[in-house]
Write a protein that binds this DNA or RNA. Structure first.
Lengths: 200, 200
DNA sequence: CCGCCGCTCTCCCTTAAGATAGAGACTGTC
DNA sequence: GACAGTCTCTATCTTAAGGGAGAGCGGCGG
């Protein structure tokens, strides 16, 4: 089953998959909600899932689908190799990860791997996972603050929205700057975006 | 001819196009340089071009292709509907613009329109073009400064890199804030990114 | 039970950022 | 030649941001 918000991409994947004698596309979905409903109806061997979709994003779909079927075989697909979300998906139980600009062969072998319940680890992700271990991770609260910082909010504004004092907002921002190794909030946003911690 | 860095997307478009009795894919390219070389060799009726590609981006390709053949028929394709670059492409002479998440029918009719030398104007772009008229545009120098601001550089740092004084850098930043209707530099980056003025 | 961690708050201090106002030099156009 | 726009620089002032240090409180795991 394919879940992607671009009809073009679905067509491309479908064409590739249906040419294979051992594969067949049984269903397609264009957004997150549809993907969940569709999975439940069709129970496909493998779900190829775009990380960024309207209504409900990939992370939420992975969560829900694994609730429905804990043995679900999910292959995550994304355009951006920086996306932090993939780690969240993989740790939740997605079986594999793939970049959209991967060559045909790699895509097909990834689908085969996942269908046999073998994890598919792209080399780029494996490398990033190692890098990630070394770097300090942000707490949930810090991510909340970071989100607002990225929107250009001031500390005072952030404090008001999160119902904390400006001093506390500053403390969080400071922690963010330290963890992301940035000098200013604007640089922090640049770094966070590059790492896929936030989506603008 | 198709130019896109994702094999999947090329496959999808190729599948769609080749199903049509009046269309045929004669060539494909995976990056900017390849696209130009490929265009020169094949001289296709229509060039479907992704705006964001490795090596040379869509804007540069449009420029070069129109130098080779001023009557070239180019259909721009992009994932992001905010991209400011489309206006640059269209004003340079691209014939049409399309979002990647467009339904099959729209994609095909856009290709047909461009092949007949009719401009294809998506409703979203038309609307944006009007909005854009009302808003002040940034000067080249301001765009240079904005680029550095988006990287998180300080005014002092920006001044050093552009070989101007910090005061001048401030003047430019101030102008950017005014034109983008932002209160802080971080908000300016957020706005600029949303409008597609910069790519992080 | 105690220690670690995350969240909250406080105070002080330094520096950077933004607001305001004015001005000279260089383009190109009408 | 006058004019508009851009880029450059100057100065002063206010406010926001960032650095450093400390401390109380709640949860969670050894």
């Amino acid at each position: 089953m394919l879940a992607d918000d671009h009809p073009v991409v679905r067509d491309g994947l479908a064409a590739m998959v249906n040419q294979q004698p051992d594969m067949e596309v049984v269903a397609e979905a264009g957004d997150g909600d549809e993907a969940i409903a569709c999975y439940e109806r069709n129970r496909p061997d493998v779900l190829v899932l775009d990380l960024r979709m309207p209504k409900r994003d990939g992370v939420a779909v992975v969560q829900r689908v694994l609730e429905i079927n804990p043995k679900a075989r999910i292959l995550i697909m994304t355009t951006y190799d920086g996306d932090e979300d993939i780690f969240q998906c993989l740790s939740q139980g997605a079986k594999g990860y793939l970049l959209k600009d991967a060559p045909r062969q790699e895509i097909l072998s990834a689908i085969r791997a996942v269908s046999e319940d073998r994890p598919y680890t792209s080399t780029t992700v494996a490398a990033k996972a190692l890098q990630r271990m070394a770097k300090p991770s942000l707490t949930q609260r810090e991510l909340d603050v970071l989100q607002l910082v990225a929107q250009g909010r001031s500390n005072k504004d952030i404090a008001r929205r999160l119902s904390i004092t400006e001093g506390t907002a500053k403390t969080h921002v400071k922690a963010i700057l330290t963890k992301l190794d940035a000098i200013s909030r604007t640089e922090a946003v640049a770094v966070a975006h590059k790492r896929g911690l936030i989506h603008l």
